[in-house]
């Protein structure tokens, strides 16, 4: 039964976006991906939600500026488990262009584990969709593992 549930649950990935100081590029592309008919992620069961507490898949963009760091971490902790993190664009991974700026943290991985990375500057919406699908795989694997360890 639980096995069955863990197969079904990841078919409803709800998406939440965190902007950790991005230049808008990835952010706009995420909004485009999440909301417009051409890409229609709703047919994959995705829903874009406004509250972190409803989210399953978190899309993070931006190089994590100092000022926004605590707020991002707070919001991230408000997301209920199990959650999967997707880094959209290269900034969360390496800082991209902004690396070594005095107010840029760069390695988001230090604070938030990145499960999936979608390189691009910004990635095209199809690539973001690939990222979400990959995140769903990670989520499913995690659910199955979790259930195995419980029993």
């Amino acid at each position: 039964m639980l096995q069955f549930l863990s197969k079904l649950a990841p078919r409803s990935p709800w998406i939440y976006r965190i902007n950790a100081g991005s230049c808008n590029g990835c952010d706009v592309e995420m909004a485009t991906t999440a909301l417009i008919p051409r890409y229609d992620v709703e047919r994959l069961g995705c829903k874009y939600c406004g509250s972190p507490r409803h989210a399953d898949v978190v899309l993070i963009s931006g190089p994590l500026t100092l000022r926004v760091r605590d707020k991002v971490l707070r919001v991230y902790n408000e997301i209920p488990h199990p959650k999967v993190t997707v880094a959209v664009g290269v900034c969360p991974v390496s800082g991209g262009c902004f690396r070594d700026g005095y107010s840029v943290g760069a390695d988001i991985d230090h604070y938030i584990p990145l499960d999936v990375i979608v390189p691009g500057c910004p990635p095209r919406p199809q690539a973001i969709m690939e990222g979400v699908l990959k995140a769903v795989e990670v989520w499913r694997a995690r659910l199955e593992e979790g259930i195995c360890s419980h029993s």
């Binding site: 100081g21 991005s22 931006g62 190089p63 500026t65 000022r67 926004v68 707020k71 262009c97 902004f98 070594d100 700026g101 005095y102 107010s103 840029v104």
Partner: peptide, 14 residues
């Protein structure tokens, strides 16, 4: 303000 301040003017000088 300041949440997206990435210190870009300093970066531009480097």
């Amino acid at each position: 303000a300041g949440h997206v301040h990435r210190g870009m003017e300093a970066l531009a000088m480097q």
